[in-house]
Design a protein around this nucleic acid. Sequence first.
DNA 1: GTCAAAATGACATGTATAATGTCAACATGA
DNA 2: TCATGTTGACATTATACATGTCATTTTGAC
Lengths: 153, 153
Amino acid sequence: MYNVNMKAEHLHRLIWMSRPLMQAAEACVEAGLIGTNLSVRMRAVLEILDKYGDQTVPELAARLEIKRQYVQIMCNETLASGFIEQRSNPRHKRSPILALTDRGSAVIEEIISKEMKLVEELGENLSNEDVATALAVVSAVTDSLKKRAGESE
Amino acid sequence: MYNVNMKAEHLHRLIWMSRPLMQAAEACVEAGLIGTNLSVRMRAVLEILDKYGDQTVPELAARLEIKRQYVQIMCNETLASGFIEQRSNPRHKRSPILALTDRGSAVIEEIISKEMKLVEELGENLSNEDVATALAVVSAVTDSLKKRAGESE
DNA sequence: GTCAAAATGACATGTATAATGTCAACATGA
DNA sequence: TCATGTTGACATTATACATGTCATTTTGAC
């Protein structure tokens, strides 16, 4: 039927827009980081710490959905740059809690607010409902795809 | 203002859904390739050839927006597996035209049709208009982001 | 037709992001 | 205390590209 194929085609295009969208978004983030001495992955560490509070490397890894061994590297880098620091962990002596330093806190909050302003500007030509609809559709599609991919492993 | 922030927040979430969406989509493609002796990048070569017809490596590279040197590798792999073959190019003796073999043609068309069926299933719970809206929003956001990132380079 | 410039394939090397594997130190709980 | 789990550190591998260079061949301007 005409409408069915049209819908599938739109959906197909929507799914494969995800890559250009991601690349464009990442390029913007990267551009916003120039002059801060931050890398994209250091920014990711700071963002989680700012959003969810102080935590250990394994906790960060779980939230980022990246293997802890790699997150460890990201965090060591960030530690070396002085944006975060280690605090002793009462719950585990070998796993210090990572916390933002004043400098790290200031840097990440400035970056996030700059990014948020950019997002607001992006939304200027879009209606509230359309954005909400888009988010709902993309979320639903992502969930379905995740379920599919999960089944066959 | 309430609505403004809400919209920005939704938009922010929408933008950063792109990564999970992409990963889920790629995982599905990969899962669908099991048993075909095809890799994801070989599939990409076959798809372009099937969609846009026989062409040379540099033409493929332009369409994939990947550097020709890497596309060359992808194509050589695909050639070695017998899914495509070289035909002499009347326009350029050193640049053979790549064409699907019967086997390659059969394989890619089966895969594409399987994938399309999956997309149609994904769309079952979504309305025509919502999908169209989502595509329009995502396209608009991607374009804006691309423009931003482009400016600062 | 000649000759410089562009296109092409082949190859080598570099980079970013991440997964995987392993080990030893330490912590925890039965 | 002893088995088991957690953590950090380190090494290796994989993927997906980009970049650079070279020789050949083709093309286009004259």
